[in-house]
Amino acid sequence: MGNVVFKRSNGLSKKEFSYCPGCTHGIIHRLVAEVIEELGVLDKTIGISPVGCSVMNYEFFNCDMQQAAHGRAPAVATGIKRVRPDNIVFSYQGDGDLASIGTAEIVHAAHRSENITVIFVNNAIYGMTGGQMAPTTLIGQKTTTSPYGRDEKHAGKPIKMSEMLATIPGATYIERVSVHDPLHVRKAKKAVKKAFQTQIEGKGFSLVEFISSCPVNWGKTPQDALNWVKDNMIPYYPLGNFRSPEEDDKND
């Protein structure tokens, strides 16, 4: 028998992912799971599932989980963290959940600098409910509720959550990443690790925004969808760091 070169992270359950072909939720779940395992905090982590395609991710993460109402995950995370400050708490939310119905909750969780980690998955569309326009849908992008393409005069311009949240004094660590190729997957993992480390060190609110894809609702092959992330999403949603604890340390 040869050496094991690749295995399922202990941070994941044995249940197979139920996501569509080419959906990046699977990659992102794995990155979060690997980081939690590698940091040695899996057995004290409590995750929060959102409403959206990842609503059932409590099936996939191998830790205690709570399922939250649409958009309310940061409030649920706050409730948990305030009564169990020694546990590691993360929420996992999509762009409908976080950038639309849950804007108040995410803004105020950042504003209070809740010592939690938020994994924000932005694929510019409502995947679960059938491909409706999200606040993050790009200009001209066709969805079931923007059938002629998003018109900024009608629906405004796509919201940039990381930039917005980075303006909040309480936000400690904010970074936007992508998983459209292996190089970026590795960079993304570093960001996730940094986010959880920020929490472990008690430094406050951390969020990693993933630019993600939705081949089925975009009407593209998985590879075309990843190309569309690179060619259309990333130019509008630039990758990089928007807030870091080091920067805050410098300003103190």
């Binding site: 929060i48 939250a68 409030a75 409730g79 009564v83």
Partner: peptide, 11 residues
């Protein structure tokens, strides 16, 4: 929803 989270965590 904070009540939900805290109660779910046993408080």
């Amino acid at each position: 929803n904070m009540v939900y989270g805290a109660s779910g965590a046993g408080a």
